[in-house]
Design a protein around this nucleic acid. Structure first.
Lengths: 104, 104
DNA sequence: TCCACAGATAAGTATCTGCTTATCTATAAC
DNA sequence: GTTATAGATAAGCAGATACTTATCTGTGGA
């Protein structure tokens, strides 16, 4: 749940790919594995790291487990980034537009 | 300059401490080392990683080197985060206030 | 010219990471 | 029950990481 855990979790491309897949909804471990060229245990281990970092949540349904993005998981990153707001690039304009869009 | 480099660079607490120190302006390597309990070469190596990730810039002045935060360095993180905006927490409200404040 | 100092590089080492195969646990289907 | 399947765990290994001490490079000042 701390900054180091979250940044370390995000540093691995396969783990970011797992999060990416969860963007369009809940998935079980087998579905998460689809595009990744790693073994089932490797996926399971990555999922454990992501869960440990608070980035994903899981819900057991019989012998399946549904994984989903944890809404508060990115909080440490956002908090950290906020401290560096003076060094955000021109992209801030885009961000503003984004937030306006979210209002509607 | 890619996501992996940046997240990996940010995953280390000593490297985040270096960035933290740069928040209040340019520093040379010796100044960066002050609060850290690691050797001079270790600092130098961390600085190299941060530079490689595009997070800091350096400016040689005689035999000193002034390090500073690179304004565009966080772009990959902001871009990545943007894709997950639907999973940002209530903190978005804070962010909006922040941006409004930056307008003034 | 010579020395001091800022910082980088080299080399070595202990620990951490990400992966594998093999195995275990638990639920579902028959 | 027995068997198939989803997922976790164990153990082992190769490569990456973070650190150390020792050394090198280059600039500034005496």
């Amino acid at each position: 749940m701390n900054e180091s855990d979250v940044f370390r979790a995000l540093a691995d491309p396969n783990r970011r790919a797992v999060l990416e897949r969860l963007l369009d909804g809940e998935k079980n471990a087998t579905e998460l594995r689809e595009r990744l060229r790693i073994s089932q245990p490797a996926v399971s281990q990555h999922v454990a790291v992501l869960r440990g970092a608070g980035l994903i949540a899981e819900k057991k349904e019989g012998r399946h487990v549904r994984y989903s993005l944890a809404p508060e998981g990115l909080t440490p990153v956002l908090d950290w980034l906020t401290r560096y707001r003076a060094f955000w690039p021109a992209r801030v304009e885009r961000l503003k537009a984004l937030l306006k869009e979210m209002d509607q």
